[in-house]
């Protein structure tokens, strides 16, 4: 690990001010992804601003019947919260599908959203990767791309976003609240947080440098059932090959794109009366493959109608 300086932020305003004042600074919350990447020298911040003890770990009801989840709430606490389990079960299911018990006890809501891809070429510093070393090329494009993106990829990058939690949050139409480096707050739809790779896969979100996520806000739960399904190489503690979150009429896919992928075409087709199979077929009309990841298209074709059916049964049962 390369040397860095460390400070613990006294409050959120101090954290963003420190980020604005210090070159190459990064926020540190749970650290489960950032410290791993720092050991591999994929990340090498000069300064760490520890935001892990900021009083942003609570969950609270909002006036309109939704729920505000503090950015420092651990994945375990969010998944175990009685309100989340009763009203947003898709979120609990998605969180417990990710990582291990030890990791979920440390990983935070904000950090989970900002975790980086598990693409093998991003991790292997002897290989080209435009995300890790812009301009070096994409090793995955013609390489071991079995788990690469099938939606929204570019010739510069075919990496996927690994979060399970974020997929459920997109299906639930969550909003992100942030504090900008100037100290002002803003909020925007979570599905607008992450970017597609385009020509600049190293820029993964629409946050400005030094902007701190302070909360994720869920609107009131949608009508209808909620389900998260994840397919992977082993039964537990493995990244997804494909996953789907269904929440009422909204559908989001995981492990298939550079961001949690809202299946807007499938949603529109379903709303217009198409069958689940037809609806996902409409979405997959925009899918592409790079050789080894073609099986993911069939995986999604089978996974999504099964999840829609399961959510539909729950919705009728409720």
């Amino acid at each position: 690990m390369r040397p860095f300086t460390y400070e613990r932020a006294a409050d959120a305003q101090a954290a963003v001010k420190a980020a604005a004042d210090t070159p190459n600074a990064k926020f540190l919350a749970g650290g489960t992804n950032l410290l791993d990447l720092m050991k591999l020298e994929i990340e090498h911040p000069a300064h760490l601003i520890d935001v892990g003890r900021l009083p942003l770990a609570g969950l609270e009801e909002t006036a309109d019947g939704g729920l505000r989840i503090g950015a420092m709430a651990t994945n375990s606490h969010v998944a175990a919260d009685a309100r989340v389990r009763a009203r947003y079960p898709v979120l609990t299911q998605a969180i417990v599908a990710g990582g291990s018990g030890q990791l979920r006890n440390k990983a935070t809501t904000g950090g989970n959203l900002l975790q980086r891809t598990r693409c093998a070429y991003f991790y292997d510093t002897t290989k080209p990767c435009n995300k890790r070393a812009p301009g070096s090329g994409c090793g995955a494009l013609e390489g071991l791309n079995r788990n690469s993106a099938i939606f929204g990829a570019s010739h510069a990058c075919i990496a996927t976003h690994p979060s399970d939690m974020a997929v459920a949050l997109v299906a639930l139409d969550a909003t992100v609240e942030t504090l900008s480096p100037s100290g002002s707050a803003r909020s925007f739809p979570l599905m607008e947080l992450h970017r597609l790779p385009g020509e600049t896969p190293q820029v993964e979100t629409h946050l400005v440098p030094g902007e701190l996520i302070t909360a994720v806000v869920l609107p009131p739960p949608p009508k209808g059932g909620q389900v998260y399904r994840k397919v992977r190489d082993r039964a537990s503690y493995a990244a997804g090959l494909a996953s789907v979150a269904v929440a009422g009429g909204r559908i989001a896919l995981g492990a298939v794109a550079h961001k949690p992928w809202r299946a807007a075409d499938a949603e529109a087709a379903l709303a217009a009366g198409a069958s689940p199979a037809e609806a996902i077929g409409r979405e997959l009309a925009g899918a592409s493959e790079n050789g080894r990841n073609g099986f993911k298209i069939n995986l999604v074709r089978r996974l999504v109608p099964a999840a829609i059916a399961q959510a539909g049964e729950q919705g009728r049962g409720a």
Binding site: Y6, L28, G31, T32, L35, D36, K39, L48, S76, S100, G101, Q102, L103, N105, K106
Partner: peptide
């Protein structure tokens, strides 16, 4: 040393974590 094996698991304030992925 990367949070994958769990051999470093300790309890912090009673909660289990990977001590290798924490400063």
């Amino acid at each position: 040393d990367h949070g994958q094996c769990g051999a470093c698991t300790v309890l912090v304030n009673g909660v289990r974590i990977n001590s290798c992925l924490s400063l």
